[in-house]
Design a protein around this nucleic acid. Sequence first.
DNA 1: CTGGATCCGATTTGATACTG
DNA 2: CAGTATCAAATCGGATCCAG
Lengths: 124, 124
Amino acid sequence: MPEFLFNKKLYYNPVEFAMDRIGGTWKMPILWRLKDKIMRYGELKKDIPHITHKMLTSQLRELEGEGFISREVYPVVPPKVEYSITKRGERAVLVINTIRDYGLELMKEFQVEHSKIAKHRKGK
Amino acid sequence: MPEFLFNKKLYYNPVEFAMDRIGGTWKMPILWRLKDKIMRYGELKKDIPHITHKMLTSQLRELEGEGFISREVYPVVPPKVEYSITKRGERAVLVINTIRDYGLELMKEFQVEHSKIAKHRKGK
DNA sequence: CTGGATCCGATTTGATACTG
DNA sequence: CAGTATCAAATCGGATCCAG
């Protein structure tokens, strides 16, 4: 397993590299929401439960800085900022889908119940 | 996105749940090594660069406790303990493969060199 | 050889206040 | 509305020591 440097951090394998780009608690939920629509900062904030202002802004900065999302600022008062997904972000969403499906599978094995309106969702 | 509890921790989505089971810096490297062979504690320790005693033992405990690997203790002196992958662990390796492939793809995009030979860098 | 426990510094995150 | 800055709390990880 080769090791390498990126942004002054030492990585031991490609998995770690990938997870540093799109992992953590919040990046996937953000990308997931932007996968098929443009959203404003406030919309994301309202839509992602429990995320704090600080985490949302910092994670958006990182995702933007590494090209997974793009940010458009409208010079109006009050400010309006829209976030949208990029090609690179769309590619990431494919991987997120795989992990998500696996997560659902694991939850079943571990008998975890998503308390919310766990209606019968066939397929997907 | 539903939220739910598992082991007294609150999760917001299936991705987070999956990554808590097999994510972190060391779990994937461990599973990866056990995917096609049984290994002793000391072998894993020597084989995984930079992992500390504390991290290796704690991660092995968690992986075992959640059924991704199994642990066999031989009642001899000095102790001999062998770790092997389970069916659940093998399923996880499939996902790890996907993430790994994606990681390699990303590394290429970001022009990361993963040669073991050091390259000239500006800073350090 | 394997593994548990403890101390402690480093990193991450939450809460809060402030700005254009 | 969107974003920055600061401080404190919580978490994580490394080093070390003890044990069967």
